[in-house]
């Protein structure tokens, strides 16, 4: 039941966001017909998709996690994205590369956490996640400029590749 309510509410909010400007009756943005039809559609979607949307637990309902996620996106993630782009710009112009594929084991357990980390790694300096070991959640990372110091220890230490991202992801998703 709780899963159904969550799915329906989220669906309804997204429907409302997509239909702003349809009328001026409700808060100056929506018309009554759109709201009624949105409620109907989101109830149908809630019945159909509740078991797909909410899989194992309700831990992502905690607002603290959403807030941490926002802080992470605006703060460390955006800074790393900027650095990544300046780095790639430098390599595009000069052509200095030293590529290789290395393995890291961040030690995350949930699917959502490992997805978030892999996406963050792809969008940050000089790294691209290529493959995943599904039994141990180890990631294989293509690194555009391999650091010789990092190769001394196997598997490679996370701090060379993604800084303190695993800590943030653990705070958000686990």
């Amino acid at each position: 039941m709780l899963a159904f309510i969550i799915t329906t509410l989220l669906c309804f909010v997204i429907y409302l966001l997509f239909t702003t400007g349809s009328g001026t009756e409700v808060l100056g943005l929506w018309s009554w017909i759109e709201i009624a039809f949105g409620a109907l559609l989101s109830i149908v979607v809630g019945i159909a998709a509740r078991k797909i949307f909410v899989k194992d637990s309700f831990r992502m309902l905690n607002p603290v996690r959403w807030f941490t996620f926002l802080v992470y996106m605006i703060g460390p993630f955006f800074i790393a994205l900027t650095k990544a782009n300046l780095d790639v710009a430098y390599r595009v112009i000069t052509g200095k590369i030293k590529p290789g594929i290395v393995k890291i084991s961040p030690g995350l357990k949930t699917d959502f956490g490992i997805t978030l980390l892999a996406n963050s790694i792809t969008l940050t300096p000089g790294t691209l996640s290529v493959d995943i070991d599904e039994n141990t959640n180890d990631l294989y990372i293509h690194w555009i400029n391999v650091d010789e110091k990092a190769l001394e220890k196997k598997p490679v230490d996370c701090k060379y590749i993604c800084g303190n991202f695993p800590k943030w992801v653990r705070r958000i998703a686990e």
Partner: peptide, 17 residues
């Protein structure tokens, strides 16, 4: 860039930013 992986670096990061 010389191969698929390094080209993907350019293709993902720069277009997103």
């Amino acid at each position: 860039f010389p191969d698929v992986y390094t080209r993907l670096h350019a293709g993902t990061k720069c277009t997103t930013f």
